[in-house]
Computed example of a mutant assay.
Amino acid sequence: METSIVNLIDNTYLRPYGSVREIEALIEDTAKYGAYSITINPLFLRYAREYRARKGYKFKVVAVVDFPFGAGTTEARIDAIKRYSQYADELDIVAPIGLVKSGLWDEVEHDIGAVVDAAHREGKVIKIIVEDAYTTREEKLELYRIVMQSGADFIKTSTGFEERDYAEKIGNKTGAQIENVRLMAELSRRYNPGIGIKVAGGIRTYQQVLDLLRASERRPDPTQFRIGTSHMLSIIESMKSS
């Protein structure tokens, strides 16, 4: 189980002040411990792809798109997907949160459908980040449905960059929360049983991973369940004491 858990990790570095040194360290740790992928900002996509090729490593390269706000136009988001697909194996794109908060559900559905289609035309796996900290339960019910019916490969909980003050104002916590993952699992039974679930945001321990995996109702298989974390080494360390 422990080895399979590491293989579910999208090992992540998304800080704006990161340099190629951090990306190289991320790549080496990913290869050493057997994580599924690296998840990085588009600035370093080509560098990471070429570094991986030189070393002969086999992990996937994931790019974040319109991150962390989901505030770009649909046309700009599609263009970014096409450009990043030259170097990325997978794409994690933020849902259009402003449209969600405006209740413009037809526009949300159009945008998500368009970006999913664009990614699939490029032959890429796409994950939609629903940024749970920013939505009410009623908004989650509709947004999760739209994501699940769009044909997206994964629904993802969080960017890890949420504003705590806003989240608390509407009664939410930041990061991956078990109750939201349970709701994803419940709704997926109705709308898309095959959709993967990616948990991300504040995941630092092996026990957190096990609890979220259980809530997801998914098998420990990277086509069904992923863990987005910048704390892979903490998770591995906590396995040893579990």
Results as ranks from 00 to 15, higher is better:
Gly18Cys: 09
Gly18Arg: 11
Val20Ile: 06
Arg21Ile: 04
Arg21Phe: 01
Ile23Met: 12
Leu26Gly: 02
Glu28His: 02
Ala31Val: 00
Phe44Ser: 08
Leu45Pro: 03
Tyr47Pro: 07
Tyr47Cys: 11
Ala48Trp: 04
Ala48Cys: 07
Tyr51Gln: 10
Ala53Met: 14
Arg54Phe: 12
Arg54Trp: 03
Gly56Leu: 11
Gly56Gln: 12
Gly56Asn: 10
Lys58Asp: 13
Lys58Trp: 07
Val61Met: 09
Val61Arg: 07
Val61Ile: 15
Asp66Val: 08
Pro68Leu: 15
Phe69Asp: 13
Phe69Leu: 15
Gly70Trp: 11
Gly70Cys: 10
Ala71Met: 13
Gly72Trp: 09
Thr73Ala: 11
Ala76Pro: 01
Arg77Lys: 14
Arg83Gly: 02
Tyr84Ile: 06
Tyr84Thr: 02
Tyr87Val: 06
Ala88Gly: 04
Asp89Asn: 10
Leu91Val: 05
Asp92Phe: 10
Asp92Arg: 06
Asp92His: 07
Ile93Asn: 02
Ile93Pro: 01
Ile93Ala: 12
Val94His: 05
Val94Met: 09
Ala95Tyr: 00
Ala95Met: 04
Pro96Trp: 03
Ile97Cys: 04
Gly98Trp: 06
Leu99Tyr: 05
Lys101Tyr: 04
Lys101Asp: 09
Ser102Asn: 04
Ser102Cys: 02
Trp105Tyr: 08
Asp106Pro: 01
Asp106Asn: 14
Val108Asn: 05
Glu109Trp: 00
His110Gln: 03
Asp111Gly: 01
Asp111Glu: 11
Asp111Val: 01
Asp111Phe: 07
Val115Asp: 06
Val116Ile: 15
Ala119Met: 14
Glu122Gly: 06
Glu122Phe: 12
Gly123Lys: 13
Ile126Asp: 14
Ile128Pro: 02
Ile128Trp: 08
Ile129His: 11
Asp132Glu: 03
